[in-house]
Design a protein around this nucleic acid. Structure first.
Length: 434
RNA sequence: GCGGCUAUAGUUCAGCGGCAGAACGCCUGACUGUGGCUCAGGAUGUCGUGGGUUCGAUCCCCACUAGCCGCCCCA
């Protein structure tokens, strides 16, 4: 087949599905606004080094899933630059935070974004090479209160609210603390040491992880490995007092707000920048990719990419997965019928097409949704077309054009009436059947 | 990167080593003012791509590509 197709892992979103996407985005923007977030839009590609230094050189994302290319030099004096399609958006936001000196204001920055991200993974249900995320970041100098556990709780409460307003039920919030960077490094060492003896008895992946990224061993799903994992040192025991206090305040605030959560001491997220609070909202019915959204605190990220100390916390919602979840829930209820146009204007004869456009313009200016026929004399054809997409048909024949009295038929009731042009918009604005 | 399943009409899918099928959708039906329900008629297509076996392949075999599902990982 020689025809060009959307490349692997990418897809077209068509009406009416895009209506659902827009509804979700609009709801998110509305909720975020109530929490005083503002929108940020960062470039879709960045210098490759940004992701290597933030997400982590050793992570799967950076080591094998990025779309990276050498941007060619256009002049002899210009150097080539390695660029990468963003695999996530937090790095870009923090880069912008540093670049524009947003921390200099002393104010806490609350930013959200909506946009496509790119990872070269094997596509499957809920996983695409171009996928969409809605995310938000709370970041600022320590003096702005950015480190407060209240920020963590507020963000989680906001997410619970958003899911509620989207009428998504059946989700689970899994919560953990991986400690400060120091705690995390310490625990990593403890784990590595403990794994020396037991790793050879574990699955191949775990043997590899024991060396490269010991925390990942905790995520292993092989049944035989579970007893061994249970016997490994717990991350909670490696947390310093500050980290423990911080986490306790997060959970206390969630309890007070009535946000349900499940402690998951083995929740380790795959991006290197996470510190202290990490979380994931999961949902069944998503197949193997059950994470609806994920996030956490990143107290050292800004410094890792050369910025000032700027603790923060953020999350990213998998929009594709949100849509899937909503569609799955929707099917158990009534499927939403596609909205119909308010009127279909059938001009009888091409000589009336210009007049039909003028009429449509009037009605559309009045806020009505209007479709135009093609000037066919065959009313049968016009009726067939009109009935599929509109609630009423407006007939504009020679008589109507001369008299200014239009013929309108209501498809719901089947009744036909004459309406003076001056009253037409008001008439069509009425609900069908009235 | 690895494994399983799949690829036929616009869509969802049957099917068979020998003229390509259904349903839905689409078009037409006393063609210059009336749709829906029903009826009658009609058009669908290089049977994913490339090779092989065969007198003959949409069907059997191989490779490739893509999709779905799972692993890994993540949203």
């Amino acid at each position: 087949m020689a025809t060009v197709k959307a490349v692997r892992g990418t897809r077209d979103l068509l009406p009416p599905e895009t209506e659902l996407w827009n509804l979700i985005e609009a709801t998110a923007r509305q909720v975020f606004a109530r929490y005083n977030f503002g929108e940020i839009r960062t470039p879709i590609f960045e210098d490759t080094g940004l992701f290597a230094r933030s997400v982590g050189e050793e992570t799967d994302i950076v080591s094998k899933e990025m779309y990276t290319w050498e941007d060619r030099a256009r002049a002899q004096s210009e150097k080539t630059q390695s660029l990468t399609l963003r695999p996530e958006n937090t790095a870009g936001v923090v880069r912008a935070y540093i670049e524009h000196g947003l921390g200099e204001s002393g104010q806490l920055q609350k930013l959200y974004y909506v946009g496509p991200q790119f990872r070269r993974e094997r596509p499957q249900k809920g996983r695409y090479r171009q996928f969409w995320q809605i995310g938000a970041e709370v970041i600022g100098p320590p003096s702005s209160g950015s480190e407060s556990p209240l920020r963590d709780a507020e963000v989680l409460e906001m997410l619970a609210t958003l899911l509620q307003e989207l009428e998504i039920t059946g989700w689970t919030l899994e919560l953990n603390s991986v400690g400060s960077a120091a705690d995390r490094a310490k625990y990593s060492d403890v784990l590595r040491a403990a794994l020396v003896d037991v790793a050879p008895k574990m699955c191949g992946d775990c043997q590899r992880r024991a060396v490269t990224n010991p925390l990942r061993v905790l995520d292993c799903k092989v049944p035989e490995d579970q007893p061994i994992i249970e016997s490994l040192p717990k991350i909670g025991d490696s947390l310093g007092k500050d980290s423990k206090d911080h986490f306790a305040q997060v959970t206390a605030a969630l309890d007070a707000a009535g946000v349900p959560y499940k402690l998951n001491r083995r929740l380790v997220r795959g991006l290197d920048y996470y510190t202290r609070t990490t979380f994931e909202f999961t949902h069944g019915g998503l197949g193997a990719q059950n994470a609806l959204l994920g996030g956490g605190r990143y107290d050292g990220l800004s410094e890792a990419i050369g910025g000032p100390k700027a603790p923060g916390i953020g999350f990213a919602i998998g929009l594709d997965r949100l849509v899937l979840t909503l569609q799955a829930l929707e099917s158990t209820q009534a499927p939403a019928p596609a909205a119909k146009a308010d009127a279909y204007i059938a001009s009888l004869g091409e000589s009336l097409n210009a007049a039909a456009l003028v009429l449509a313009r009037e009605l559309r200016r009045a806020g009505l949704r209007v479709e135009l026929g093609d000037g066919s004399f065959r009313l049968k054809k016009s009726f067939e077309a009109a009935d599929k997409i509109a609630r009423r048909i407006v007939i504009l024949g020679e008589d109507e054009h001369q008299s200014g009295i239009l013929t309108v038929k209501d498809f719901t009731t089947g009744t036909q009436t004459k309406v003076p042009r001056a009253e037409l918009a008001a008439y069509l604005a009425r609900p069908a059947g009235e």
